[in-house]
Design a protein around this nucleic acid. Structure first.
Length: 525
RNA sequence: GGCCCCAUCGUCUAGUUAGGUCUAGGACAUCGGAUUUUCAUUCCGGUAACAGGGGUUCAAAUCCCCUUGGGGUCACCA
């Protein structure tokens, strides 16, 4: 029988980075075994707008290149893949349970149940269901139903039994059934609860391996019992650790994002993200996007390969050496047996380092295709980039070299795209290197003249000119280069100065020097 | 609090199943140095961990027990 795994998100409007890691492991295990990966939508909540809430989730899968064999949009032999459309099978299973006496109608009111629970807690004893409704005769039950008395259906937990599983990650885990309350299987309106719907569907879809986050471990005995009561073959289990917040052990959560902002381990990522997002018209402080969501990384300009690599190394390793895995590598090498048991905190630094590695591996043409949308969104180039613009962007990318870790980093070299008037000059350094040094302005004037007369305005000759100039004037290159850089790029540091000058072009360089010299002079008086 | 899970450098991890080859390996981060016109890259080097206590054994990071700590979960949510 071929391996079938599933990922079952509820449509929440965004894809959680931790959920994505779970989904990746599911996908990997299916692919590795040449089985099927299924996307099932757990929407028993009846959301108003499922399409809108599901869209970002599917987008995340598509962005990372994780395809699904069955599920939304693609359908499949076990359709439908939305729990909201599978009610008939839950009703049938419910009837089966009731008929077999494995479940019972509980007429206790929620208040009564709650009171018992509180009483148990007060007396420090374990709460288990009273099962008062179980002593009702068949006729009495029928009568109450006829009277329209509300009831829920509860699974009759076989007290005295044990549930034992052999988890692929955790090994043997067992629970004592005499400690378990009878779980509600169907609400008073007849609709199924999560644990029940999950079990019915996992069986119906012939899921062989339930790979999910550890937080579901407490659900497992209930689901095992349900499978048994229904006469299903129980799937195999693998409870993988959840993704923790950086430097901590708590589950990463969307709601704690403000706390993460103050987390030193998150600093670099937030700085990068804030800088990029603000350039493309997204409010970095908005709740709509945060590092907890997969979309965040896409928006900032991460590569699927970088994100995927970071995710797979969270709780999984191949050996004591390997760090870099392409999706193909993972597919070949992933095993559940090498998934670690303890929770792993997302490490933004390491994520960035994986990202930088995969970016350095990316062919120039793909870097270009990646950067273009960012420059367009920022209004730095036209939406219809003509060939000469594309060439220019390609040259800047080449010049950027390793400085381009994410596509959004292209904004660090915005001096090649802004018009002179919009060029912002780093004032602090400008004061220090241009305004304050007495000879700076004269030197720059002289240099400007020589640039105008240079036959070929390309990196090599510019380099020679600059070297000769500083030798002739008997000044250190450190007194000339930074000042020049500030004038033409506005920045104290950046890519290769000579190539930058060449790319900017003589006219632009001369113009910007003019402007900067004028600025410095006005500030001297 | 009940139930369950977890515990190796700051972080991600290798080593634990079959105890010795572990004076505990790698990566990220960090610190130093080299290269470079700056920054980045690259290269070299350093700092840095078996939570504690008992056993078992010739021998324990590895097996057992306890303690401590961390976490998950306790709904007519998913």
């Amino acid at each position: 029988m071929s391996v079938r795994t599933r990922f079952a998100p509820s449509p929440t409007g965004y894809m959680h980075i931790g959920g994505m890691r779970t989904a990746l492991f599911c996908w990997l295990w299916a692919r590795r075994n040449r089985g099927q990966f299924i996307l099932r939508i757990d929407d028993t909540d009846q959301q108003r707008n499922i399409d809108a809430a599901l869209g970002p989730i599917l987008d995340a899968f598509r962005w990372l290149g994780l395809d699904w064999d069955e599920g939304p949009e693609v359908g499949g032999p076990y359709a439908p893949y939305f729990q909201s459309q599978r009610r008939a099978s839950y009703d049938a299973a419910l009837k089966k349970l009731l008929d077999a006496g494995r479940a019972y109608r509980d007429f206790e009111t929620p208040e009564e149940t709650q009171a018992q629970r509180e009483a148990a807690e007060k007396e420090k004893r374990v709460y288990i269901s009273s099962r008062a409704s179980l002593s009702l005769s068949n006729d009495e039950v029928l009568q109450r139903i006829a009277e329209g008395r509300a009831f829920v259906v509860r699974l009759l937990v076989p007290r005295g039994d044990k549930v034992v599983i052999d988890d692929h990650v955790r090994g043997r885990v067992e629970w004592d059934c005499s400690l378990m309350p009878d779980p509600v299987v169907a609400r008073s309106d007849g609709s199924p609860l999560y644990n029940f719907a999950t079990v019915v569907d996992d069986a119906a879809l012939e899921i062989t391996h339930v790979i999910r986050a550890e937080e579901h471990l407490p659900n497992t005995p209930i689901q095992v019992l349900l499978h048994r009561a229904l006469g299903n073959k129980t799937p195999e289990w693998a409870h993988i650790p959840y993704v923790a917040s950086p430097g901590g052990k708590e589950k990463m959560s969307k709601r704690k994002i403000d706390k993460y902002r103050t987390n030193p381990q998150f600093q670099k990522l937030f700085e990068l993200g804030d800088q990029v997002l603000s350039r493309i018209g997204i409010d970095p402080r908005s709740d709509a996007l945060s590092p907890v969501m997969v979309a965040y990384y896409q928006q900032v300009g991460f590569l699927p390969a970088g994100v995927l690599n970071a995710l797979v190394r969270l709780g999984w390793s191949l050996d004591d050496q390997a760090e870099f895995f392409s999706l193909e590598d993972m597919e070949q090498k992933f095993t559940l047996e090498r998934v670690i048991k303890s929770a792993a905190g997302l490490d933004p630094d390491k994520l960035l380092s994986f990202q930088a590695h995969w970016m350095s591996q990316l062919p120039a043409s793909e870097k270009l295709d990646g950067c273009l949308p960012f420059l367009k969104k920022a209004g730095l180039i036209d939406d219809e980039a003509d060939p000469s613009t594309r060439d220019r962007v390609a040259s800047v990318i080449e010049l950027a070299g390793d400085r381009l870790r994410v596509f959004g980093d292209i904004f660090q070299l915005d001096e090649f795209f802004v018009v002179d008037e919009d060029l912002k000059i780093d004032d602090k350094n400008f004061q220090k290197r241009v305004v304050k040094p007495e000879n700076a302005i004269d030197l720059l004037r002289d240099l400007q003249k020589r640039f105008s007369n240079l036959t070929d305005f390309v990196a090599g000759p510019i380099h020679d000119l600059l070297q000769g100039f500083s030798a002739e004037k008997q000044v250190k290159v450190g007194d000339v280069f930074p000042a020049l850089r500030l004038c033409v790029t506005g920045k104290a540091q950046g890519a290769d100065l000579f190539k930058s000058l060449e790319l900017l072009g003589r006219e632009c360089v001369v113009r910007r020097m003019d402007r900067a010299i004028g600025l410095a002079e006005s500030q001297r008086v």
